[in-house]
Design a protein around this nucleic acid. Structure first.
Length: 730
DNA sequence: GCGTTACATATTTTT
DNA sequence: TATGTAACGC
């Protein structure tokens, strides 16, 4: 197969630019994944680069998996030798090998956000800081920010009182992690940089191994990631990065798209290649996207183009409230499906905040429309899954305090705050670990009469737990992850604990069984427990099991990045939602909101709906809403539907007519309209494009009227009276 | 130690 | 609205 024949000129240039640094500025839908994979294939096949000398870094497991799959097709079994993975997975692997240099045992546990928060909370309590005043999430965010910027607790220079608190917690936090032989996500990056900086011999080894470094979504790198790449690549300079600053939507997590500028400065003479040709969307959609993003000041102008004709206009719709917004989306999807224009699975509904999914879901539920909700509660964040994994973790890494705390009284075994508090303060007093303290307790209890600070009942409960753990540790030496998990479940009576007769209990138990199935995939693998734990620590979701049914997808704009759909609905196009009220304080944040909107728009291949409401309730309060400023950025020639105005008068008038009838729970939307519809079944009408037809049904929808017409020549269509220019005949 | 009730709280979340 | 935590009582 000729690799290059399948690429356009810019893509080919990117793929074949072999020596020296390169920056590919790739617009949405411009084939960047193709460029990355073909470049790897090109290096191996045409340039004779050994696969083991190539490393390709992504942000998500999904992206890494996709790249691996494509490479398998291009290169065959050779691709086994490639290093393809997420920053975190690659760093974890390096640290399992080199972590000893920083004093870590290779069996370290990786703490996810949940675990991290648990540590922060414990420390806040320990240091007597009021959780109300210093919320764990906020403190943790500051710590994480510091780590992403490679600032150690010693180097941390607080610039505010809040940061002063964070600095103290940070120091204690790092100590706590060390005591638990645990690293958090940020540590994985920070410590690899530290190893490289402090041990030139180690750095040299990795530099020599990886002669070619490729990075996807480079605009999302944080400082730590950038420094890491720079260390790895500054000698051979074969650093190839793909970026789109317009899709930078994670700055609040430390991503810094100024790394693009840093790259240009640090890697002088880097080849810059623009991928502006879009293979995804219609011209109309691209123009709308360009119109929105061009208002950002901090960007290098870039103009997408396509040869996919004009396409249909972007449909702007105002619904009365979020119920009718959902109803509108549902109606439109069902109408298009009925007309054979698309399948349900071609449609996606995107929103700014997860809470918005609810109204959409309710509408779909009412209408009997199945849907796929992406990323609500992720599998590995479920309580029962975290519990199960925590048991396995304390068997593999007994120092893991967060996991121990999690399970020591789960299911309840009479070990409450009091007893545990006593246990740990006793351990501190004795200058030993909690486990050591338990052993000491056992010795004392056996010698009968020796002093210890527990009552008989508490002591017995503690010793029962110690015994349980010891048995499982013994088992862990000979059994694999799945068998061990099964044993854990049995020994703890976890099934009985979960299956409490409720449906939720059944669901939870089923999830545990699913986890067991995942574990079973590691049977026969050497060190199956270690491998399994690493996998579940770094993978946030199980593989979308079997691609499932043909149903519309509901997801946040953030999660939509990297995806595409023929039909896209962006709902909640309102001030305060998009842009979000919490992000409207600074120009930078506003630009990010704009990029978020841009990401959403550019997900659409053929049809784009931008939906806003007249009033919306949040936190149980219903308030009038204003159309998003981003709507005003789109030229009206691209729109189908009225251009939302800020004008107050007609809106106020409409509110009276609608508000009087539109309220009330459970009532299906669009029933009991305030005025008579202008059309009714049986009316003969004429449409400028579709010709003559008969009205089948008409109902008020939001502030408009939805008319279903059977046209003599064009068949059944659903139209909005306000735009359709329908005229009654006769 | 564990279940109940009052009260504050409220984006986005690749790993 | 709905969720999670703190305080309270058994």
């Amino acid at each position: 197969m000729d690799l290059l024949a399948q690429l356009n000129a810019s893509q080919r240039e990117a793929v074949t630019w072999v020596d020296g640094p390169a920056l590919v500025l790739a617009g949405p839908g411009s084939g960047k994944t193709r460029v990355l994979t073909y470049r790897v294939a090109y290096l191996v096949r045409e340039c004779g680069v050994s696969p083991r000398r190539i490393v390709a870094v992504t942000f998500t497991n999904k992206a890494a998996r996709e790249m691996k799959e494509r490479l398998l097709r291009l290169l065959g079994p050779q691709c086994e030798a490639l290093t393809v993975g997420t920053f975190h997975a690659i760093c974890a692997r390096i640290l399992r090998r080199e972590g000893g240099l920083l004093g870590f045992a290779p069996s370290f546990t990786i703490y996810d956000r949940d675990d991290q928060l648990a540590v922060v909370k414990r420390i806040l309590k320990e240091m007597n800081f009021d959780e109300k005043l210093y919320r764990p999430g906020a403190v943790h965010a500051l710590i994480s920010k510091a780590k992403n910027e490679l600032v150690s607790p010693e180097d941390y220079r607080p610039g505010s009182y809040r940061e002063e608190i964070a600095a103290r917690v940070y120091a204690r936090y790092q100590q706590a992690l060390r005591e638990s032989n645990a690293l958090d996500f940020d540590d994985l990056l920070m410590y690899v940089v530290k190893v490289f900086q402090n041990h030139p011999d180690v750095l040299l080894r990795y530099r020599q191994q990886y002669s070619h470094v490729l990075v996807d979504e480079f605009q999302d790198t944080n400082v730590a990631q950038y420094v890491l790449l720079k260390l790895l690549a500054e000698e051979h300079r074969n650093l190839f990065v793909v970026a789109d600053e317009d899709q930078s939507i994670y700055s609040w997590r430390g991503a810094d798209f100024r790394n693009i500028q840093r790259f240009r400065e640090d890697f002088h003479g880097a080849r810059t290649i623009l991928l502006e040709r879009n293979y995804r969307s219609t011209q109309t959609i691209l123009e709308a996207a360009n119109a929105v993003i061009s208002h950002n000041i901090h960007r290098t102008p870039k103009t997408l183009f396509t040869d996919r004709g004009g396409g249909i206009p972007v449909i702007v719709h105002e619904a009365y409230d979020e119920q009718e917004e959902g109803q509108f989306v549902l109606n439109e999807i069902q109408r298009r499906v009925a007309d054979g224009e698309c399948r349900p699975g071609d449609c996606a509904v995107m929103y700014r905040t997860n809470a918005q999914s609810r109204a959409i879901e309710e509408a779909f539920l009412r209408g009997g429309q199945p849907y796929k909700l992406v990323g609500a509660t992720r599998f590995y964040e479920r309580r029962e899954i975290k519990d199960s994994i925590a048991y396995l973790r304390i068997l593999y890494n007994p120092a893991d305090a967060v996991s121990l705390n999690r399970v020591i009284n789960t299911p309840p075994r009479g070990l409450g705050d009091k007893t545990l508090g006593t246990l740990f303060s006793w351990a501190t007093e004795l200058g030993c670990s909690g486990w050591d303290a338990l052993h000491i307790l056992r010795d004392k209890a056996q010698d009968d009469g020796e002093e210890h600070p527990f009552g008989a009942r508490a002591a017995a409960a503690l010793l029962r737990f110690l015994h349980l753990w010891e048995e499982l540790v013994e088992a862990s030496e000979t059994t694999d992850a799945a068998a061990l998990l099964q044993q854990v479940l049995e020994a703890t009576g976890y099934e009985g604990y979960l299956r409490d007769g409720t449906e939720e209990g059944e669901d939870r138990w089923n999830n545990v069984m699913e986890l067991l199935a995942v574990a079973a995939q590691y049977s026969g693998v050497p060190n199956s427990l270690a491998v399994f734990l690493e996998e579940v620590a770094l993978v946030s979701d199980v593989d979308d099991l079997g691609e499932q049914p043909d149903a519309p997808v509901l997801l946040t704009l953030h999660m939509a990045k990297g995806l595409e759909f023929p039909v896209v609905f962006i709902v909640g196009m309102e001030e305060g939602i998009l842009p979000h009220s919490r992000s409207s304080t600074s120009a930078e944040e506003l630009e990010e909101e704009r990029r978020l909107c841009y990401v959403g728009i550019t997900r659409a291949k053929d049809t784009l709906y931008l939906v806003h409401t007249f009033r919306r309730s949040s936190y149980g309060r219903s308030e009038p809403s204003e159309p998003s400023r981003f709507l005003r950025d789109i030229p009206s020639r691209l729109l189908h539907g009225h251009r939302p105005q800020a004008a107050a008068k007609p809106r106020a008038a409409r509110r009276l007519s609608s508000a009087s009838t539109r309220r009330g729970p459970q009532r299906p939307a669009a029933a009991n309209p305030p005025q008579e519809p202008a059309f009714q079944a049986g009316d003969r009408v004429v449409h400028p494009k579709f010709g003559e037809g008969t009205v089948k049904e008409s109902k008020l929808l939001g502030d408009d009227e939805q008319v279903t017409v059977e046209f003599a020549e064009k068949g059944k269509k659903m139209l909005l009276a306000r735009f359709a220019k329908l005229e009654k005949v006769r």
